[in-house]
Amino acid sequence: MDLRIFTEPQQGASYDTLLAVAKATEDLGYDAFFRSDHYLKMGDGDGLPGPTDAWTTLAGLARETRRIRLGTLMTSATFRYPGVLAIQVAQVDAMSGGRVEFGFGAGWFEAEHAAYGIPFPDEKFARFEEQLAVLTGLWGTPAGETFNYVGKHYSLTDSPALPKPAQAKIPVIIGGLGAKRTPRLTARYADEFNIPFASIEDSAAQFARVRGAVKEAGRDPEELVYSNALIACVGSDDAEVARRAAVIGREVDELKANGLAGSPAEVVDKIGRYAETAGTSRIYLQMLDLSDLDHLEFIADKVMSQL
């Protein structure tokens, strides 16, 4: 079971804060540091000092870390043209020495688009599908050849498809609970399928749909990684769990029901049930209090050591 750290900087985090978390992620033996791609806070709080751009952040971290994988859950297809995004991701992959993983989603948070003057298209999923074709096409075009694409929303003519990523293939992560289109696109483009904040039962059902779509597409379902993103709130006793829950404005019972919360034994047991029942092999731990580096150390020592 891989454990990765997943942050939500739009809730309020500077680059320096993210750097501290990423370095702790690396030093403590976690597999990867991931972040969201949002420009506006959600829920309570003031969001200060304001948003940080996902790929600008990852470019900086690419030069300041050495081992951990770096990526997004999920880059929004509504924010960037696919040709520009292909260049950004390939460059960060080269800057990191080939450690980038590309989580990609259609985009959904309309308020952040209005706040920063970003168009919020009606046909988000159709654009998302075309972007997947363009991005993977650009990255996969052999050096010295050109890439052409004609779609409803995007057209590319004689693109040199440069720069090339450091990796022969950047891993693509697709996620969500869509019953038909999401599994179909996963089968065509993805190396990993991720479900955010879902129960063991819902995860098992969706993973089964994806496995079926992958098999129907002529691929081995075992080629894919099946992962969950779940909020983490772990402590040595009830008081510590309650303190950490209060800091992020959540109730302990709700966190235990919907995330990975409680004692190390409780959390290890629940991770085991995700693995056994749903087939999960990777978990992204959503860390909402980015100042609490002791939390990362505690999970590494008391939870990850048992996995």
Rank of each mutant, 00 (worst) to 15 (best):
K152I: 01
P160Y: 02
I118C: 12
F34K: 03
A114Q: 14
N228C: 12
S291I: 05
E8W: 11
L290F: 13
K180A: 11
V150T: 14
E123K: 15
L156N: 05
T52R: 11
L18I: 13
V225I: 13
Q11A: 06
A143Y: 11
W108A: 08
P121A: 03
E201Y: 06
A54C: 15
V100L: 14
I195F: 01
A22M: 05
G103C: 05
K124T: 05
F109A: 01
K41V: 06
V267D: 00
D202T: 15
A204L: 09
L85E: 03
A32N: 07
A54D: 01
P121W: 06
I231D: 09
E223I: 08
R181E: 12
E112G: 07
E276V: 10
A278K: 05
G249N: 09
V267Q: 00
K302S: 13
D27C: 01
I283P: 00
I200W: 03
A242M: 04
H153E: 02
V210C: 04
D37Y: 04
R184C: 07
V252M: 14
S36F: 14
A166S: 04
R69L: 15
M42N: 11
A265H: 09
F298R: 04
V92S: 09
L48K: 14
P9F: 03
P160Q: 03
D202I: 14
M287A: 10
L290R: 10
G178L: 07
D46G: 00
T186Q: 11
A94F: 01
L3S: 02
G29Y: 02
V92H: 07
R4G: 03
F197M: 15
Q91W: 08
A20F: 08
